[in-house]
């Protein structure tokens, strides 16, 4: 079975003959999945993101989005409509001076009929909980709100998959939570998510993780598989979630805490289980 995104042996360098920012990367994203790409700054994860919807073209290898190659120019707009993208800086991706008009931007570009627009704009804004801000100027919104408007702008185009290129890196904790919760909800509603991040706590909430380093995918697996080896992650200049650290320490003390603990609720569950057994 082929996935919604198929990346095969992709290589990419910013300058011809220069260092490879993405080096022989292959992976598949299945429809409906919530996948994280985790890596430190400069690991190549953002470059990889831009290869997925044809913003960059691979030097070798192929990227297929729903079977369409990003190298095929006749499909480029279909690909970008299928695979929407939300970027890091909330200020640098909103185009219009009013929220409503910004959400319309993608619809106007893809030639959606004028009569159809208001309905699609409203339901997209509703999906991210921003319908009350329709007539506001983007620069007066908070970072988290701006990112939700950016998501609405993508949603209005009815994508199958949304790629988030470190979309929470510049937000405060409240904004980060606001955006991540929204994205989790969208995933439950059937949209495939590719979440690029360096936050461990976020990656722990995804279903699959690919860890990048030096342009390569060096680890792949479920969160509990990935975070099982804390040493390996530290060598990659990454970390493990706080609850996982605590679980490891307890295990070292001889307490049989499950290795799957990643979040606070997991730990609460384990403590209850172990306390009941005493």
């Amino acid at each position: 079975m082929s996935g919604i995104i198929e990346v095969q042996n992709v290589r990419y360098a910013y300058e011809e003959g220069g260092a490879l920012a993405v080096n022989d990367v292959s992976f598949t994203v299945e429809e409906g999945e919530f996948t994280a790409i985790l890596g430190r700054n400069g690991s190549g994860k953002s470059t990889l993101a831009k290869l997925l919807n044809g913003l960059y073209q691979p030097d070798s290898g192929t990227v297929l989005v729903r079977g369409m190659s990003t190298a095929d120019e006749t499909h480029i707009w279909d690909i970008r409509q299928t695979a929407g993208m939300v970027f890091q800086n909330p200020d640098n991706q909103l185009v219009a001076t009013m929220v409503r008009e910004d959400v319309a931007f993608g619809l106007e570009n893809t030639g959606v009929a004028t009569e159809e627009m208001p309905g699609r704009i409203e339901s997209a804004l509703r999906a991210v909980g921003m319908e009350a801000f329709m007539d506001r100027a983007p620069h007066l919104l908070s970072g988290g709100q701006k990112q939700r408007v950016a998501i609405a702008g993508i949603l209005a185009m009815r994508p199958r998959i949304i790629i988030f290129d470190e979309a929470t890196a510049m937000l405060d904790p409240a904004g980060r939570r606001e955006v991540f919760d929204t994205v989790e909800r969208l995933n439950r509603e059937g949209i495939t998510i590719l979440w690029i991040t360096h936050f461990m706590e976020e990656a722990a909430r995804c279903r699959r993780i690919h860890v990048m380093d030096g342009g390569r995918i060096v680890l792949s697996g479920t969160p509990s598989e990935i975070f099982a080896d804390a040493e390996a992650l530290r060598d990659l200049r990454l970390d493990v979630p706080a609850m996982k650290q605590l679980a490891d320490r307890l295990q070292a003390q001889g307490i049989p805490v499950s290795g799957d603990v990643l979040q606070v609720e997991d730990m609460v569950r384990e403590v209850k289980r172990l306390a009941a057994a005493i």
Partner: peptide, 27 residues
């Protein structure tokens, strides 16, 4: 300049390709 670069990429990702074939929210 950095913002301009970012914005150009974001616009491209949202299928912007000039005025041709473009519809409008407000007619």
């Amino acid at each position: 300049f950095r913002r301009a670069g970012d914005l150009a990429m974001a616009m491209e990702a949202r299928c912007y390709h000039g005025g041709e074939g473009r519809t409008r929210l407000h007619v």
